Simulated scan of single mutants.
Amino acid sequence: MFIEIENIKYNIEVKGEGKPIICLHGFSEDISTWEFIKLDGHQLILIDLIGHGKSDKPKLRKYYSLKVMLRHLNKLIFQLGLKKYSMLGYSMGGRIALAYALIYPKEIDKLILESASYGEDGVLNRLKRRRNDLVLAKQIEKNGIEWFSEYWSHLNIFESQKRLSRSMINEINKRRLGNSTRALSNTLKITGQGKFPCLKGKIIKLSISILYISGEYDKKYRVVGKNFGKLNKNVKHVIIDGCGHNTHIEDSNSFIKVLNKFLKN
């Protein structure tokens, strides 16, 4: 179904029954990334973020700002009639989920972050990442979506995905190829990690239960997950063996077991 917020249509799918969990996908992904995820006693509310999937891909960059994203998400969730819910975010979706939980903490029951950053820490790191995001955005605009799909699939954090079945690899590539170059470029320029606010110092404010999941082979986000645990005693960090950056695709069974255990507590 579609829900319109301030002239922007968002694509939403609801799966299962029970306590609601809002699910936010990663960059260049869409709601089909959660295809194999089913949680006991929980209803998954899958949302295509702006510029992704079947949601609108506006030209105006203002719609890609974090402030607008968070406001639209809250209004969308309100229209669904939800007052208390958990939130699950993968990678870029995890950054957005973290920012959302800091603004609307009373609405969040539990927060689940998969391979997600709290934002680049330090002025030099932020400037370097912002410059890299801008370069990539321009390359996407110039070279097209096929170039991006090839480039993105060969990043080191996705190396372990080469072990997946051919059909699964094809599905991942299909999602990437279905993107709009303009929307991906706008996302990188406006809410890429270089522009995203560093939330490291605010994590301590969260009093809700938080699960952070990372993959064994994803060195960067194993460290980030460890840092989350140091920053807030409510964070439980779980590392899934044999996985890289995208644990919910690389080993959906283990991912589901970890989530079900966390949600039952």
Score class of each variant (00 low, 15 high):
Arg166Asn: 15
His42Lys: 15
Tyr85Ala: 01
Met69Val: 10
Ser115Lys: 02
Pro105Met: 13
Ser32Phe: 15
Asp109Arg: 11
Leu206Ala: 09
Ala116Pro: 08
Ser207Gln: 13
Glu17Met: 15
Arg126Glu: 11
Leu76His: 07
Leu66Lys: 00
Glu107Ala: 06
Val258Glu: 00
Leu80Cys: 03
Thr33Trp: 05
His237Arg: 06
Leu44Ser: 03
Gln43Phe: 06
Lys261Gln: 15
Phe262Ile: 05
Lys202Thr: 07
Cys23Thr: 04
Leu46Ile: 07
Asn227Ile: 15
Ile8Met: 08
Lys138Ala: 12
Ser165Val: 12
Arg61Pro: 05
Ser86Cys: 01
Ile45Glu: 00
Gly26Ile: 00
Ala97Gly: 02
Leu211Gly: 00
Glu250Gln: 08
Ile22Asn: 01
Gln43Tyr: 05
Gly201Ser: 11
Thr181Arg: 08
Ser86His: 01
Gly229Leu: 13
Arg130Tyr: 08
Lys106Trp: 09
Ala99Ile: 05
Trp152Thr: 03
Asp251Ile: 09
Lys54Asn: 10
Asn11Glu: 14
Leu88Thr: 04
Asn234His: 04
Cys198Thr: 08
Arg130Val: 06
Asn265Glu: 14
Leu39Cys: 06
Asp56Val: 12
His248Ser: 05
Phe36Thr: 15
Leu124Tyr: 10
Leu184His: 04
Ile8Asn: 03
Ser167Ala: 14
Ala116Gln: 10
Gly122Ile: 11
Pro20Gly: 02
Ile190Ser: 00
Val135Pro: 03
Lys162Glu: 13
Ile240Thr: 04
Thr181Met: 11
Lys220His: 09
Arg176Ser: 00
Trp147Phe: 13
Phe36Trp: 15
Leu98Ser: 00
Ser165Tyr: 14
Ser115Ala: 13
Ile96Ala: 00
Ile169Met: 12
Leu124Glu: 12
Asn132Tyr: 14
Ile213Asp: 01
Gln139Arg: 08
Gly53Met: 02
Leu113Gly: 02
Leu24Met: 09
Leu44Ala: 01
Tyr10Val: 12
Pro20Asn: 08
Asp109Ile: 09
Lys138Arg: 14
Lys9Asp: 13
Leu155Asn: 08
Pro105Thr: 12
Gly41Cys: 14
Lys19Cys: 14
Phe228Glu: 00
Lys84Ala: 08
Ile190Phe: 04
Tyr10Lys: 11
Tyr104Cys: 05
Gln43Asn: 06
Leu127Trp: 11
Arg126Tyr: 09
